[in-house]
């Protein structure tokens, strides 16, 4: 083992592996976060303009109309 570590090529290899791992770690975490976002049905629906227009007009038709009392009066 001692002989193995003394070899220059082996040491350099270890350093390269360590550096790559250090960069890959956060990148992998980031890659995980992205799918989580895209999997959100909230985001998928509420950012899709065509879909939200269609859905909101459908909802508007079945939603009870916002009513104000006919007895309300005045300028204030």
């Amino acid at each position: 083992m001692k002989n193995l570590l003394k070899k220059k090529g082996y040491k350099a290899g270890l350093i390269v592996v360590f550096v790559i791992a250090a960069f890959l770690g956060p990148a992998a975490a980031y890659a995980k976060a992205e799918p989580a976002k895209s999997k959100s049905e909230c985001i998928a629906c509420h950012t899709d303009l065509n879909r939200i227009i269609r859905l909101s007009s459908e909802i508007e038709q079945i939603r009870p109309e916002f009513r104000r009392s006919a007895e309300a009066s005045g300028e204030g």
Partner: peptide, 16 residues
């Protein structure tokens, strides 16, 4: 102020 027969609240104000 008051509540009408449909349960809706209302405000009545006079002239401004």
């Amino acid at each position: 102020v008051g509540t009408d027969k449909n349960g809706l609240t209302y405000f009545r104000s006079g002239k401004t």
